[in-house]
Design a protein around this nucleic acid. Sequence first.
DNA 1: AGTACATTTAACCATATGGTTAAATGATAG
DNA 2: CTATCATTTAACCATATGGTTAAATGTACT
Lengths: 120, 120
Amino acid sequence: MVKCTPRTLDRTFGALADPTRRRILESLAHGDRCVTDLAKPHRMSLPAVSKHLRVLEKAGLVCRQRDGRVHRLKLQAAPMQQAAQWIEEYRRFWEASFDRLDEYLNKLQQKEKEKHDSKK
Amino acid sequence: MVKCTPRTLDRTFGALADPTRRRILESLAHGDRCVTDLAKPHRMSLPAVSKHLRVLEKAGLVCRQRDGRVHRLKLQAAPMQQAAQWIEEYRRFWEASFDRLDEYLNKLQQKEKEKHDSKK
DNA sequence: AGTACATTTAACCATATGGTTAAATGATAG
DNA sequence: CTATCATTTAACCATATGGTTAAATGTACT
């Protein structure tokens, strides 16, 4: 269905591994923005943000539409789908671990209850 | 529900951004393995694999159980859940883009058909 | 034409990453 | 006790990453 080379996953996960870039994507989820606007909330220089945008662009997570001198950035979430699919393969593992956690917590609660009962 | 600091996501996505580490996780999905076994399929030295394992361990994606001189590595997929949740926020965007792709492909097909019809 | 704005490029720096080989650690086997 | 096996640590190297400031580019305004 979705073609997925390792390189693509490298770039996608790599792009998502930085908090600044994730915040940029979050901004873009609320609508297209230009570079300056995207940079505003971050305490770093414009060129730094510009670099982050290039990383996102190379990962295909963002595209850009030049409109005069302002660049309008647009979220392109499609590559995330592949990442999500990759992760999805492991769902049963974390669900299993939560089942074990549940089990553990239930046992703990049971013991507490028994202790409480024995005091009466 | 699931506590999720940015640091955690950094480490999780960062760990997943390397193909060797993803292959290691895939191995571990089939069962626990020791370091030497995990290293075998990779064309790199044991210390290199050892480093990757430490990255995975710091990200909480793997835990280790020393049994004599062999270390038994075990998959711990729980941190992936947070990553999956983060990505999930963007599902509507990639679904929207696939809708647009569908639309586009349908139009294309329609045009082809018209061309074909006019030739008759 | 000249100024101001949006953005990138260039040059640089510190630290992180991914790999190597050689040596150290720690456990097992003979 | 010694040799061997599993693994890590140390020291090193090349390249990547994430940031900076200063200069360049390209567009808009008057």
